[in-house]
Design a protein around this nucleic acid. Structure first.
Lengths: 229, 229
DNA sequence: CGCTGTTTTGACGTCCATCAAACACCGTGG
DNA sequence: CCACGGTGTTTGATGGACGTCAAAACAGCG
């Protein structure tokens, strides 16, 4: 196989998991594997190619840069997630690796033909896209909060959920996947405000910090309370 | 037919347009038509039913209400648009009519079986969902602008695009689909700020107001300039 | 040890939210 | 026809929260 599906860490969670082994083998012929270093760009903004990818390990961010050069993070992609828009030709979003990452890369047309040959794949991608849409709207609701404290608390809670394996309970200790600048870009705040609010959360006793990115949830209830102000 | 597909105003733009007449007839047996008054709720927040709908005329909003009772508008739905999430059971979003509207309503399971019988439908829905995702991220980028003036200008530009039939050129004169309060909820601002910024735009000569909701673009270039501050 | 990049903390100014009141619009009923 | 409330919009005055500028603390690394 051109792609190591057999040993793929997300083989039963990614969109392609709905395929049989033969179908998957068929699809893997058309794709290619790629490794990304932190900061490396998978899709550039404005490029017209219709391509897409499944993240097998690491983490990606989807971002856009406005006229004044401010970056805005629109979404994070976790392993088994999917990025790329193959219908409309060009996209002003950029996809960049946050951590050392590995992806399965496909041309848009290949995915389209694969979808017509294997209808289950289309349904799986639809489901993933609906989840992405839901996540995007959740982030929209979060960034709409008038209070910066609530936004930061909500972001940390979201990261805690994502870092946990169990779907409902947040992880009790984890690392922030983003730098302060990236947190700020995600929430529509400045670096300084994010930093201040995090220290305020620590002083209030809701969390504790370990190093620059380590977060420990000492009082999750208080944290979610602060997220709702 | 239980649904008047033959005279449907969006019969060649909605997701179901990819179906043949017979397939469409088949699907229409499972759906039902519904009329909505302004303010009437199509899907309540928190309800567990998995249903979905295509908007045939009018306009809808997708919104959520946080713990303090603040409404946040997450998306607008235009004719031929699609709403509803049929995979994950429950949703904290609410779908409400903004204007007198008509929808084709389907149970989630019916859509799922229809998709497996007619794979093209799944692809069409995937495409629509990707478009919704893109729109959501565009709104996310807009609401992230630090300056209120830029947000309001961007919103007006967006409405001008939506009101136009041609995809690239904005309409020169149109009505805001939202009240001031709804604009504010969409942008994460207050009613007063939205009002002030609109009058500021008028004083700057970028737009002119006709009545409460009528907008005339007298200087679109200046308007898009102000959207990028 | 000195360098560079990230994070934190401080002081200050500004923009927006808040509170409050005036206004426009539109029905209803006197 | 005009007074009357009701709703949505506009405008004004004020305070607070966040952005901005600046510098210090800190960690990583040659």
């Amino acid at each position: 196989m051109s792609l190591a599906c057999a040993t793929c860490p997300v083989r039963d969670r990614a969109a392609c998991s709905v395929l049989s082994d033969e179908e998957r083998e068929d699809l893997s012929q058309r794709g290619r594997h790629r490794t990304l270093e932190p900061g490396e760009v998978l899709f550039h903004a404005g490029e017209k190619v219709t391509a897409c990818a499944t993240l097998t390990s690491g983490a990606l961010k989807v971002s856009t840069t406005d006229a004044e050069g401010r970056e805005r993070i629109l979404a994070l992609v976790h392993p088994a997630g999917f990025v790329g828009e193959f219908f409309q030709p060009f996209d002003d979003h950029e996809v960049v690796a946050l951590a050392p990452s590995e992806v399965c890369l496909f041309a848009g047309e290949d995915i389209e033909t694969a979808m017509s040959e294997h209808p289950a794949l289309g349904r799986a991608l639809l489901r993933r896209t609906q989840e992405d849409l839901h996540a995007s709207r959740t982030l929209l609701a979060l960034t709409g909060k008038p209070d910066a404290q609530a936004r930061v608390a909500g972001l940390i809670l979201g990261f805690a959920q994502a870092a946990s394996d169990s779907p409902c309970h947040p992880a009790q200790e984890f690392d922030l996947p983003l730098s302060r600048a990236e947190c700020a870009n995600m929430l529509g705040l400045t670096i300084e405000t994010v930093s201040r609010k995090i220290t305020a959360l620590e002083k209030s006793g809701a969390i504790r910090r370990h190093g620059k990115r380590g977060i420990e949830l000492v009082d999750p209830a208080r944290l979610s309370l602060m997220a709702e102000v």
